[in-house]
């Protein structure tokens, strides 16, 4: 009897202790990355799928190395967008790495491509540049670095799917004018420097029409050789 009472008391004590711990946890935000990156979601979507704002890019499923490089560049101010520069200014490297890993590991479905606003001729010009480039003007094909399926390559080359024409066009413009830069050799600045405004419109429009491939994840590092050196993708 006595032993049983003691056992019951002990059980109650344990129960109370567990309950106390649960109350403590219940009163805290979830200990997850999803809760920690809520500040990113109004612009990039809950899982990094993007939002209705065409200038805010999808983050989900891009290679972690690429996302990490962008976070570092926004933190240091090398890549300029004040709302991003401000949010990241005092966050340490390992945390930015964890954020990059988080969005890289999310795979919400790619959106249905929106109908294009440009003519068939412009789309055809975009397709030609993206898939074959223009050797006479030193323009490599997008697919030669971003992959035959445009899914990107680990660790540093982003996929180009699920991005709206306005975003791609704005970024290519920023590379052309030197307001977006990356580690030397800055391959995208070299490429964009050879593009005309009409090229940018055409390529951005065609990329935005691409449907999701069967396997939309970035290919492993070294799957194919890059046509030239790129600071963001060390060999």
């Amino acid at each position: 009897m006595f032993a049983r009472t003691v056992a019951s008391l002990a059980a109650i004590a344990t129960f109370v202790a567990i309950d106390g711990a649960a109350a403590q946890t219940a009163n805290q935000p979830p200990d997850t990355m999803a809760a920690r990156v809520e500040a990113c979601t109004p612009c990039h979507g809950n899982k990094g799928e993007g939002t209705s704002d065409v200038y805010f890019p999808r983050l989900a499923g891009k290679p972690a190395g690429y996302l990490y490089n962008q976070l570092l560049a926004f933190r240091s101010g090398r890549r300029k967008y004040p709302p991003m520069n401000y949010l990241l200014e005092f966050l340490p490297d390992p945390y930015l790495e964890a954020m990059a890993e988080y969005f890289a590991s999310e795979h919400p479905p790619l959106p249905q491509p929106a109908p294009s606003e440009v003519s068939k001729d412009v789309l055809a010009q975009g397709e030609l540049l993206a898939t074959s480039g223009d050797a006479n003007r030193n323009i490599p094909a997008c697919v030669s670095c971003h992959g035959p399926e445009l899914t990107g390559m680990q660790p540093g080359i982003p996929g180009l799917l699920g991005l709206r024409a306005a975003y791609v066009s704005a970024q290519l413009g920023a590379w052309r004018y030197g307001t977006r830069t990356a580690k030397s050799p800055d391959c995208m600045q070299l490429v964009a420097g050879h593009l005309t405004e009409a090229d940018v419109t055409a390529v951005a429009a065609w990329l935005a029409t691409r449907p999701a491939p069967t396997n939309p994840v970035p290919v492993p590092k070294g799957t194919y050789a890059l046509p030239f050196g790129c600071g963001s993708q060390p060999n």
Partner: peptide, 24 residues
């Protein structure tokens, strides 16, 4: 308007952030 993160520190290396509502 702008949201914000507290600083990442030794005692709080992965701070929770406030979303910006300027666009919403």
């Amino acid at each position: 308007l702008n949201g914000g993160y507290p600083p990442g520190t030794k005692g709080n290396p992965m701070p929770y952030g406030m979303p910006p509502f300027a666009g919403l």
